[in-house]
Design a protein around this nucleic acid. Structure first.
Lengths: 150, 150
DNA sequence: GCTAATCCTATTTTATCAATAGACAAACCA
DNA sequence: TGGTTTGTCTATTGATAAAATAGGATTAGC
């Protein structure tokens, strides 16, 4: 399973906006997060069209969150730039047509997406900006670290 | 997050092999699961090189699982054809280098992968062949269906 | 009217995915 | 021994999407 650079950039850019005084210029975000400026502009525009950002032009212009940082999740962001949170062979799990023995696989993909969702929909920009991730995430990370130390 | 057609094909092909008497011909798998034959051959070869399959040539040849179906998980299969189970911007979550505000994002990606793992490593080919998915998966699917009926 | 920023559309570049082609090698059988 | 069937291997094509870039249009403020 792969998450695109665009989705990663979008989340980082939004985190940056959540943590700085509005309005914030695209160039500042690009520098801080090492994202190609013109690529970032496209992404910010998508996010604006989706209603997650507002903006102003001119010398004192920039971008800012359209809603409170605690009301924007990573899932919201990724859906804007990547579409559905999880898709298999370019389709949503439900619309896959499996025959015979492979049929139960469909349920696995559905479960997989549900699990992806449970993480991405639980993390808000406010939590990232304050480095205060939800318990679900912290526990998962703790488990991974415990494993690595073996 | 996207799962490739190749990974989907590989899982379906392995399920087919788990459910039929060895040896099974590639063409039979291709027909049963509607996978392009030559593409499937490449995939089966990868799985063989990874030690998940064995094979025999000639008129009575075909493929069969190298281990018991209860000892092969979907994670095993997907790692062969796609590499790491979850990667962001073409890299593993750990090797990403985040600066400043975006730092907690790294933990989110790590947690995300852990969650993906917990599904894919828990499902074996035997469970798919017998349509007897583990509780973790069944519960997730049940939750999704409950939601949809609202 | 000048400057600095966002806005918008198009294009390019690059990489990856998906699929195909064709020759080769071994197992089996008559 | 020769022919058929099947897997093995490497290379290439074609399509698609991802990633990045280009350049002008628009708007806000001074």
């Amino acid at each position: 399973m792969r998450l695109s650079a665009k989705a990663d950039y979008a989340c980082r850019a939004m985190a940056e906006l959540a943590a700085s005084d509005p309005p914030t210029k695209a160039e500042r975000v690009a520098t801080a997060q090492e994202i190609p400026l013109k690529f970032l502009e496209n992404i910010l525009l998508d996010l604006k069209h989706a209603g997650l950002l507002e903006s102003q032009r001119g010398g004192d212009g920039g971008y800012w969150l359209a809603r409170d940082a605690s009301d924007i999740t990573l899932a919201d962001i990724i859906r804007v730039v990547e579409g559905p949170l999880a898709y298999v062979r370019g389709q949503r799990p439900e619309s896959l047509d499996y025959s015979g023995v492979a049929e139960p696989l469909k349920d696995v993909w559905v479960a997989l997406r549900a699990n992806v969702r449970s993480v991405l929909e639980s993390v808000t920009l406010a939590q990232i900006a304050h480095n205060d991730l939800p318990d679900v995430v912290q526990e998962l990370v703790a488990d991974v670290k415990a494993w690595q130390s073996h």
